[in-house]
Design a binder for these strands. Structure first.
Length: 588
DNA sequence: GCCGTTTTCGGCCCGACTGTTTTCAGTCG
């Protein structure tokens, strides 16, 4: 039973309690919701935690007490939960389904099921459109529900961060040129660099003399790539970008900008935790400011003031997920997060020898020139090194190289080294970890290479035992330096393979094998919460782009974002080291 | 149900918007 499955059952319990209306204590419901979130974002599999320390160990997780720990125990042991099975009988399945529709809460869900007798969302939509629901809902409510259904269907394909960010940046750049605009900031999950986002939310402040909020809104809806204006008010507007993304802009008053920016950035969980802490200190935090114990409202023009007023260090947006950042901010123990400018090289680039599209010399020049940085920095800072890591023979689909090909390729690397002496070109491979855990290149050959990344590209659905064994064998191989995309997940397409993370982290730490944070858009693998868990075990990382084209070098910032969300510092990451120090690690 | 430098009992974040029952319940972020 995975954390996700356990979390889902806990959430279902909360929903059924709400729907049945029998549970008068709403905090009991909230407790299940919180526990669900705690389980879902927990870095290690609870089944493993249970194996190590039983129920008591599970109770150590914030938000899980004795009662819920017992339920988790039953789920892990039997795969079932009697309490849940009984509870499910209390409400029809359709009601739980209706709750997914934005704008519909428990009360309305019950009305839809009992009075309208809708069987499912499709049936509900039909009844709303045919007029069968007219007695129950007036026009606006009907339209509201239909819109909710549409949003739900669109939500099924949330945007990848790597798709949403460039759109947001383009709009921000556009708005910054509008007269009177002082500040523009992306907010929400986008500002926290979460791996997927729903809509693109932006906030801005404007100077009245130049026309004020209204003028800015007018400019916003005229953004050249607008396909549709949904709403346009005095201070707020929503447009649809021509490639289908919804963009929201809200103009905020300057004097409260900090409080509002903080509020809209979230996460919800972070804000709840922040407010809860504040209450303990007799403060009250809202988007309008902070009421001190004397009842005086302190307005915050900057986010820094918000945290400072509460006696905390400033918390970077990437950390605002309620994973201990508030406690750390109070104790001045927040990590100094790694930054893009710390990255000194990329260790995962596919050339046209395998499935990449570029010559080695061109890769070297591009890495030297831009070094994964876009914008003004790109001109100044280049990488010190880049590793050409083509696929090994086993990967037929990606034109993996035979040993003789690698020898040929080495000649081209030598030539590129001569024509491009300012950057170190490392002779590398992304070698396959086969189903039995062996590698598809012999050790004698791997020994000749500068750096070796080992990755799983086949037999994804083996048992946890099998998969873990493969990864442990790869770590134990003295020639393997990096485990590539350790979980194998593809966002929106494939679940991670089933790994015993605890064991992998221990092995990686012991053998000084780095885990890759793969910056490719639908990977972002190892994911943030696992990075955090691994770092605690002493694991080191590399952040690599897995580039197949020159422009993929720019993806580095998304890998860095994952590392930052995983609380990683410069010291945790090998490719922040200069070439000499990198060699020391590689020759360990 | 969870949790504790005020507490093992008695709290649990806060405010805005929406539709409509026109004074507030329901939902959201």
């Amino acid at each position: 039973m995975t954390n996700k499955e356990i979390a889902n059952i806990l959430l279902q319990i909360a929903k059924i309690m709400e729907l049945s209306g029998k549970e008068k204590d709403r905090f009991r419901i909230v407790a299940y919701e919180k526990a669900s979130q705690a389980v879902e974002s927990y870095g290690e599999d609870l089944a493993d935690v249970y194996k190590r320390g039983g129920k008591e160990k599970i109770m150590e997780i914030e938000g899980i007490g004795e009662s819920i720990a017992e339920k988790i125990e039953e789920l892990i042991k039997t795969g079932k939960l009697k309490y849940f099975e009984e509870l499910k009988k209390e409400v029809p399945k359709s009601e739980v389904e209706f709750l997914q529709i934005p704008g519909i809460g428990p009360k309305t869900a019950v009305v839809i099921a009992e009075k309208l007798k809708a069987k499912d969302i499709d049936d509900l939509e039909k009844k709303l459109k045919s007029g069968a629901a007219d007695k129950l809902f007036k026009e606006k409510t009907k339209a509201n529900i239909l819109r909710g259904i549409e949003i739900l269907r669109r939500m099924e394909g949330r945007l990848l961060l790597t798709e949403a960010m460039p759109i947001a940046e383009e709009v921000v750049a556009y708005l910054k040129k509008v007269p009177g605009v002082e500040r523009v900031d992306p907010v929400g999950s986008l500002r926290r660099w979460k791996e997927t986002v729903g809509d693109v939310d932006l906030v801005a402040s404007a100077n009245p003399p130049a026309g004020g909020p209204k003028k800015v809104i007018e400019a916003f809806v005229k953004f050249p790539k607008t396909s549709n204006i949904i709403t346009q008010g005095e201070t707020k507007a929503t447009i649809i970008h021509k490639d289908g993304v919804q963009l929201d802009l809200e103009i905020l008053p300057k004097e409260k900008y900090g409080s509002l920016l903080q509020h809209f950035t979230g996460s919800k969980e972070h804000n709840v935790a922040l407010r809860t802490y504040a209450v303990g200190k007799k403060y009250s935090v809202s988007e309008h400011g902070i009421k001190n114990p004397q009842g005086k409202l302190i307005t915050c023009a900057t986010e820094e003031e918000v945290y400072k007023t509460l006696g905390m260090d400033y918390i970077e947006p990437e950390l605002r997920e309620d994973r201990g950042e508030i406690q750390a901010a109070l104790q001045h123990q927040l990590p100094k997060l790694v930054e893009l400018k710390d990255i000194k090289g990329d260790l995962h680039f596919h050339s046209n020898w395998s499935d990449g599209s570029d010559k080695i010399e061109d890769i070297a020049k591009a890495a030297l020139r831009a070094g994964g940085r876009s914008g003004p920095e790109a001109q100044k800072l280049g990488y010190e090194y880049v590793a050409i890591a083509d696929h090994s023979p086993g990967l037929g689909v990606a034109q993996g190289l035979k040993i003789s090909d690698f020898d040929e390729r080495e000649k081209e690397i030598e030539e590129a080294r001569k024509s491009c002496p300012k950057i170190k070109i490392l002779n590398s491979v992304e070698v396959n970890i086969k189903a039995d855990g062996s590698l598809d290149l012999p050790d004698e050959f791997l020994a000749k290479l500068d750096v070796v990344t080992a990755s799983i590209h086949s037999s994804f659905f083996q048992s946890q035992e099998q998969i873990t064994k493969r990864l442990l064998l790869a770590c134990a191989n003295p020639h393997v330096d990096i485990i590539g995309h350790p979980s194998g997940r593809l966002l929106g397409r494939r679940e991670a393979y089933d790994v015993d993370w605890e064991k992998l982290f221990q092995a990686a730490a012991k053998t000084k094998t780095a885990l890759e944070i793969n910056a490719f858009p639908d990977r972002l693998d190892l994911k943030d919460s696992l990075c955090q868990a691994a770092q605690k075990q002493g694991v080191k990382f590399v952040i690599c782009t897995d580039s197949h084209r020159l422009e993929h070098l720019d993806l580095m910032r998304f890998g860095v974002a994952v590392a930052r969300r995983g609380w990683l510092e410069k010291e945790d990451i090998w490719n922040t080291k200069g070439y000499e120090e990198l060699l020391e690690w590689l020759e360990r």
